[in-house]
């Protein structure tokens, strides 16, 4: 496969950045999207140019590090798939592919396609945890959990914090990420004592980071590589309202 790539290049946080066009030849359809970029980067290094910086780690779709907006869609148009698990066979030979970083004020670009997602860490630090006495693990059956709750909590817990929801949202809202974390803990018995204070603290931190508000467009859940449902946002809103009513 031969491809034309239009890639966002930005030397550093202060550089205004621009789109640069590259030709990539002899791409195997079995390559992942990141492997295709690796091939281009090897060539750029041999030519003495600066390789394209992009985030990646596990390359098996579970770490949440990779992520770029491919042809206007975070992680590309393939549903429920991270960029590292997106394969070149989903593209046509001779295609032009536009690659951009996540675009949001709370996610400043560090270089090229790499953005700083520390805002997510600070939201987790604000309340995305449970306070328990440390020690040996309790018996698995000591606290009963309904099967439905366990399933829904697990679905929410599959969020890898990649930030695609923010990138896709027309408002630059982090609601799906925050809601997934809040839902995951609020459905389990261990999350109950801090349930309302957690929701309040995390939503307030989300606002303080400068993310936009949710308008329920559903763009986030459509691009989420883990398919986190909009239900989580309804749960977050309910907990946040309860916390404020007290």
């Amino acid at each position: 496969m031969n491809l034309t790539l239009k890639v966002w290049r930005q030397k550093g946080p202060e550089d205004p950045g621009r789109m640069v066009t590259y030709q990539v030849k002899d791409v195997s359809p079995d390559m992942s999207f990141l492997e295709m970029l690796d091939v281009l980067n090897e060539r750029l290094i041999l030519e003495g140019e600066d390789p394209i910086a992009f985030d990646h780690d596990c390359r098996e779709g579970i770490c949440g590090m990779c992520g770029m907006v491919i042809n206007g869609v975070p992680h590309g148009e393939q549903k429920a798939t991270t960029t590292c698990q997106l394969h070149m066979r989903h593209f046509e030979d001779g295609a032009t592919i536009t690659i951009e970083p996540w675009r949001a004020a709370p996610f400043p670009v560090i270089k090229d396609l790499v953005v700083d997602r520390s805002a997510f860490d600070r939201i987790i630090q604000a309340g995305g945890f449970i306070s328990v006495p440390a020690g040996s693990a309790p018996d698995a059956h000591s606290i009963p959990v309904r099967k439905e709750d366990a399933d829904a909590a697990f679905d929410a817990a599959t969020c890898i914090g990649c930030g695609a929801c923010v990138a896709a949202c027309p408002n630059g809202s982090a609601s799906l990420f925050v809601a997934a974390k809040i839902t995951h803990l609020s459905l389990l018995p261990q999350g109950q004592p801090e349930r309302l204070s957690r929701a309040k603290a995390m939503v307030e931190q989300m606002d303080a980071e400068g993310f936009g508000g949710c308008t329920n467009t559903g763009e986030c859940t459509a691009v989420c590589p883990k398919g986190i449902p909009l239900d989580t946002i309804a749960r977050m809103n309910a907990d946040y309202l309860k916390a404020n009513a007290k």
């Binding site: 896709a168 408002n171 400068g210 467009t217």
Partner: peptide
């Protein structure tokens, strides 16, 4: 608030959710 949250616009942006009325 939404405009402040995305100061740099995308070159290409494609909606993935069906409901255009929301936009």
């Amino acid at each position: 608030r939404a405009r402040r949250a995305r100061p740099v616009k995308y070159v290409a942006k494609k909606s993935q959710a069906g409901g255009y009325v929301a936009h």
